[in-house]
Simulated assay, not measured.
Amino acid sequence: MFYHEPELQFEVEVEEPDPYFAKMLQQAIGGAEGEMRVALQYMFQAFAVPAEKQEYRTLLMETAVEELGHIEMLATAVAKNLQGAPEHMREEARENDAVIDAMMSGGQPRQALSAGLHAMPVDSNGVPFTGGYIVASGNLAADMYANVMAESTGRLLASRLYEMTDDPGMKDMLSYLVARDTMHQNQWHAALETMEDHVPVPASFDQSKENQDVNYEFMSTFREQRENPDQRWTQGQSPDGKGEFSYSPEQPGGGMPDLEEVIDEMYNSPSDE
């Protein structure tokens, strides 16, 4: 069950409308690093949490709903940037409408043609949002690692957008979003710290069934053999405490891909043999 308040989570102000920046903001809504991705990712992860782990379900769902608020903020920012024209364009406008001129010069035409100068569920190139961006594996540890990555790329995007604008209102909003990404990265790390034996994922798989010859071995893929570079990942104890890293100067190799064409209905043969 969800409830909605008409008040934005954080005030959104635009002093100098910029249709081009509105186009850039679309990435933070419907892009691979955007708020639609994390809102739905956390929500679907929460749906899979069993009753005995209610604290994780609450953590995920509360953050998902917060991210819905971020979508609302960004959609407001897009509209405010689209529904006005930069000062220099207003001054230069003669016969043409300055807003439409600004949109066609640097914005995303579909924001005008399909959405009437409002935000859309697309990225900065106009590509529709896809559920393929969402990671919800059903394994809490795997999902938390995915969430750290999602917040990392989200914070990176918000930081880049912050540097792309001189508008004080947009910088204030993005400063808020960057700060929330900081919190969310840390909360997912904190959640991982509460889980025992979460490396490797899934830790519940019986490691005695793994190939014991290669489960902690770094394999070099260079054609020529090289010396062990003596890096953290080629020597010493593994982070899970269950093995010792080793180094192989080559891949093991074995067997040829000698596939047989046996299904005539697939028509994979060049001729009727």
Rank of each mutant, 00 (worst) to 15 (best):
M183K: 11
R57Q: 14
E244S: 10
I134F: 07
E224H: 04
E224K: 05
Q9R: 00
N186Q: 15
P109F: 03
F21T: 05
K242D: 13
P249M: 04
E67W: 00
E196K: 14
T194G: 13
F2I: 13
E273T: 12
A136Q: 07
H198D: 11
D272F: 05
K80E: 07
V214P: 00
P19N: 10
D181A: 15
A190Y: 08
G169R: 01
N268Y: 07
E196R: 10
G126W: 09
L161E: 04
M89I: 15
A93F: 06
R160H: 08
Y247K: 00
L82F: 10
L156C: 02
P17V: 05
G34D: 05
T234P: 04
A190I: 00
E67K: 13
P86L: 07
P128C: 07
A28L: 12
Q212S: 12
I71M: 13
G69H: 02
M266K: 12
P249L: 01
D264E: 14
V201P: 03
R180T: 14
D166S: 13
M170Q: 14
Q231I: 01
M173R: 00
Q41K: 05
M73V: 01
R90D: 09
A136W: 08
Q231Y: 06
A115C: 06
E5H: 11
G254Y: 07
V65K: 11
A119P: 05
E92P: 00
S248D: 09
S137F: 11
N139G: 04
S271T: 13
G116Y: 06
L25Q: 03
L60M: 12
E7L: 05
G253Y: 10
P128G: 04
R232Q: 09
E67C: 08
T221G: 04
E7Y: 00
A115F: 14
E261I: 14
G132I: 03
N228Q: 06
R90M: 15
